[in-house]
Every structure is written in structure tokens, then in C-alpha cells.
Design a protein around this nucleic acid. Structure first.
Lengths: 130, 130
DNA sequence: GTCCCTGCAAATCCTTTGCACTCCT
DNA sequence: AGGAGTGCAAAGGATTTGCAGGGAC
């Protein structure tokens, strides 16, 4: 296991992600962080987001728009992603039946917090169509 | 609404996807279909997969490995994706509490079949680590 | 001093697109 | 004939990576 050293850039990326609730992409985050670190590079943002998600400190997910989105929430919750407008809503964890069932079910495994995604169409978009 | 014309290539892509249970990527599908249509191009595969998913005939999803995966199953079911080995398992729809709850819950919407994803670690990978 | 981390730019990977031509209907 | 669909290659966008210099311990 590699030893991490402190880095102001990484710290800033974590803080920035913690403060936002909009599940930003790497590029959106990059634009924000540039206000504090005008010289930070996009590569550094990507490198740290990858590192943090491998450490399990953040979650990454695709919402079908071609780029990855990131999330820092620490309480267990799931996501609802509207395929029409791209909006991302947080969902209560209780919507899924006891996940320990998964351990004994035939497709086996442990489900990580933050990593359950529902894709569909949100009410707002449904109403626009009718 | 545009009018579809028959195409042997598209037919072959659909058949191929129907016969497989491994949730292939565009490239994996391309390699298979080349055996029947040696001249088919990757662009055609992408074009048709995009078309079919827009028509709702197939589902596309990301499993964190950088490329999109496709699925043709018609019965409602969900996916469990192992973040360690990348395996994709089909999950029974009953694992989620009545999705009509979603219609009245505060983050609103209709969840599409095939579009619920659980990410975690499968039993096999868990055991390898212990 | 050592080794991790950064900025920069080039490279890579996946997916989409423009164009001329072919195949349906 | 008309317009979708195709193959090919180039373009586009997102993410990763190599390298030389800077910073943490």
C-alpha cells in the first residue's frame, strides 16, 4: 500500500466536493478549484478524483451524458438519475430491501453505500411530455 | 418520428445481443458480428446500438471500466456489478421495494426496467482477499 | 535525500460524425 | 427515385500518462 503525502490540491478537491450537492464532473470541479488554485491542472483533478474513489472516499458514476460524476456524501444513500434532463436526486437507502439478502442470493455480493443507481424519468420531464 | 428501414446489420446486432448474457461492450459485439459480416464497421455498430437504446429496445450502462455495456433482456431485472472484477450479475426486480413509492417520494420519477444498478464486490472477489 | 505530487502536453481510448456510396421500399 | 443505412476515416471528447521540476516528510 502506498503512503499518501499531504497535498493542498487534493485537500481542496475534497473540500470542494464536500460543499457541493450537484454531483459535478471532473471538469466542473476543475473550474471551481481554479478560483482558489489558478494553476491547478485538469490532469491533477483527474488523478486525485481517481485516487479518492479508489480509496473509497468518494463515489463516481455515469449518468449517460458521456462524463463521470462524483459525489462525497458520507451517509448511505442512493441516486435517481433522470435520463431525460440529467438531473440527479438523492434517494433514501430504505428504498432497497435489506441488502443482506444479497449475500445469500444467487448473484452474490456486498453492495457499497452510495453505489446504487436508479435511472428513469423525473416527474418534471414526464409532465412536460403530456 | 423517423421511419425505420430494414437492415441486415441491425438485425444481426439485435440477434447477437439477444443470444448473449454477458452484457457486452460495442467492441465485443463488433468482434462477434464480424464473423457473420466481415465488412461491418465499428461505426455502424455504435450507430445501431445508439438507435436501439433510444428506441428502448436495449439498455446501455456504464460499469466503471470506461466503456458502455449493452443488454437486451426484456423481463424487468436489475444489475449487480462487481467493482473488483467487473462481472455483471442479473438481480431479481423484487430487491427494490415497490417502485410506485418513487412516484410520491420527494425525489420523483418513474424508474425504467433494466436501469437499476448495484455496485459492490462479488463473493468470489471477497473470498480471494481473505 | 527520498519519494510523492504537480503542471504541462502528448497520448490513448471510446464514441460520434461527415461523406460518398449502397440498399430498402 | 428518395431517403435510410453503411463503410471508412477523420474528428471529438473524456481520461490517462510520461516527464521534469517542486513539495512533503
Amino acid at each position: 500500500m502506498r503512503t499518501l503525502k499531504h497535498s493542498r490540491q487534493r485537500e481542496s478537491i475534497k473540500n470542494c466536493l464536500m460543499q457541493r450537492t450537484d454531483h459535478p464532473t471532473a471538469d466542473m470541479l476543475y473550474l471551481s478549484i481554479r478560483e482558489e488554485f489558478p494553476n491547478i491542472s485538469l490532469g491533477t483533478v483527474y488523478r486525485n478524483l481517481k485516487l479518492l474513489s479508489e480509496l473509497g472516499e468518494i463515489t463516481r458514476f455515469s449518468c449517460g451524458d458521456g462524463s463521470e460524476h462524483f459525489d462525497y456524501r458520507t451517509e448511505p444513500h442512493y441516486h435517481f438519475i433522470c435520463k431525460t434532463c440529467g438531473a440527479v436526486y438523492d434517494m433514501p437507502a430504505e428504498i432497497v430491501r435489506d441488502t443482506s439478502e444479497l449475500l445469500t442470493a444467487q448473484p452474490p455480493g456486498r453492495v457499497d453505500s452510495h453505489t446504487v443507481f436508479f435511472y428513469g424519468e423525473c416527474k418534471t420531464c414526464q409532465q412536460k411530455k403530456s
